[in-house]
Simulated scan of single mutants.
Amino acid sequence: MIRIIVADDHTLVRAGLHRILAGSDDLDVVGEASNGAEAMALLHATPCDVLMLDLSMPGRSGVDLIAQVKAEYPKVAILVLTMHGEEQYAVRALKAGAAGYLTKESAPAELVIAVRKVSGGGVYLSPAMAEKIAQDLTSARIDGPLYRRLSDREFDVFLMLARGLTLGEIAERLCVSAKTVSTYKARVLQKLQLGNQTELVHYAIRHELLRDNP
Rank of each mutant, 00 (worst) to 15 (best):
G62A: 04
G62N: 06
V63W: 12
V63C: 13
D64V: 03
L65T: 04
L65V: 05
I66L: 10
A67H: 01
K70M: 15
E72P: 00
E72I: 00
Y73A: 02
P74C: 04
K75N: 07
K75D: 15
I78K: 01
I78A: 06
L79C: 12
V80F: 14
V80M: 06
T82N: 14
T82G: 13
M83S: 08
M83P: 00
M83K: 02
H84P: 00
E87D: 05
E87A: 05
Q88T: 11
A90I: 03
V91L: 15
R92L: 12
A93R: 01
L94K: 00
L94S: 00
K95W: 09
K95V: 10
A96Y: 13
A96N: 09
G97A: 10
A98P: 06
A99F: 05
A99N: 08
Y101G: 00
Y101M: 01
K104W: 07
A107S: 10
P108H: 12
P108M: 15
E110S: 03
L111V: 11
I113H: 14
V115L: 07
V115W: 08
R116W: 05
R116V: 02
R116E: 13
K117T: 11
K117Q: 11
K117N: 07
V118D: 06
V118N: 08
S119C: 08
G120K: 01
G121Y: 09
Y124K: 01
S126H: 08
S126T: 13
A128E: 12
M129Y: 10
A130H: 02
E131T: 01
K132R: 13
Q135K: 06
D136E: 08
L137Y: 11
L137A: 10
T138H: 15
S139Y: 15
A140H: 01
R141W: 09
I142V: 10
D143A: 11
P145A: 13
L146D: 13
R148F: 11
R149I: 04
R149H: 09
R149P: 00
L150F: 10
L150P: 00
D152E: 12
R153W: 11
F155V: 05
F155Q: 02
F155A: 07
F155W: 11
D156S: 05
F158R: 04
L159M: 06
L161P: 03
L161C: 07
L161F: 13
A162K: 12
R163E: 15
G164M: 04
T166H: 15
L167F: 14
L167A: 14
G168T: 01
E169P: 02
E169R: 11
A171M: 13
E172S: 10
C175I: 00
V176R: 04
K179R: 04
K179M: 10
V181H: 08
S182I: 02
T183P: 00
Y184V: 01
K185R: 15
Q190E: 15
K191A: 11
L192H: 09
L192Y: 10
